[in-house]
């Protein structure tokens, strides 16, 4: 089943802001991402099970700040101590996740329908983030992720690439339109292409 867009009401394609006279390929690109499986996996505090022995889509969880373990389809973001956010293009992973992370030791929650996802690609992607979030983005490297706040909106930032910079932002679905407004507003200065 494909998901209903969280941003359909405000996301329009085209070029906006200070884009005139600039090479279209160099412009900041802003897009919505849908159809991802998003699952939160939390190991209970009293659980003594080794999470490292569990493999999901060939990946093993890592309890390390900023860390993202990944392959072409799936990324597992560190959310907090023994708390991860799994994001995958493979929608059918959910069944095996629920099976492997047994309910006596893990809380597995499907959040696919409760997030709005915005992707920003381009040289100025970090500059856009800096405008609304006081985190030191200079230290955020490729395949790092953080939870923070952008203009008062709680969000998760996943750094997908650094040549050029590409970030994926997750916010609560109900805050999606506000975040989209904030992000596009901050991008006007650079000019951006909405796709």
């Amino acid at each position: 089943m494909s998901l209903i867009s969280a941003l359909a009401n405000i996301h329009t394609t085209g070029q906006f802001g200070d884009h005139e006279g600039k090479n279209e390929n160099d412009l900041l690109k802003i897009s919505e991402n849908q159809n991802l499986l998003i699952v939160q996996i939390v190991q209970y505090k009293n659980s003594i099970l080794s999470f490292e022995s569990i493999e999901i889509d060939g990946l093993k969880l890592k309890n390390e700040p900023l860390n993202v373990v990944f392959n072409n389809d799936t990324r597992v973001l560190w959310n907090g101590p023994k708390n991860w956010l799994l994001v995958s293009k493979k929608k059918d992973l959910l069944t095996s996740i629920s099976k492997k992370f047994i309910e006596t030791d893990f809380a597995v929650t499907d959040l696919s329908h409760s997030k709005a996802i915005i992707e920003i690609e381009g040289q100025e992607a970090k500059e856009v983030l800096k405008k609304g979030c006081p985190f030191n983005f200079n230290i955020l490297e490729k395949n790092n992720s953080i939870n923070s706040i952008y203009n008062g909106i709680a969000l998760t930032i996943d750094m997908l690439d650094d040549n050029p910079d590409k970030v994926r932002l997750f916010a609560l679905r109900s805050f999606g339109e506000s975040l989209y407004h904030s992000i596009t507003d901050a991008s006007l200065e650079f000019g951006f292409k909405s796709i």
Partner: peptide, 10 residues
């Protein structure tokens, strides 16, 4: 102590 240096508003 879990995440590193973060701004107060978090």
């Amino acid at each position: 102590p879990h995440c590193g240096m973060r701004p107060q508003i978090e």
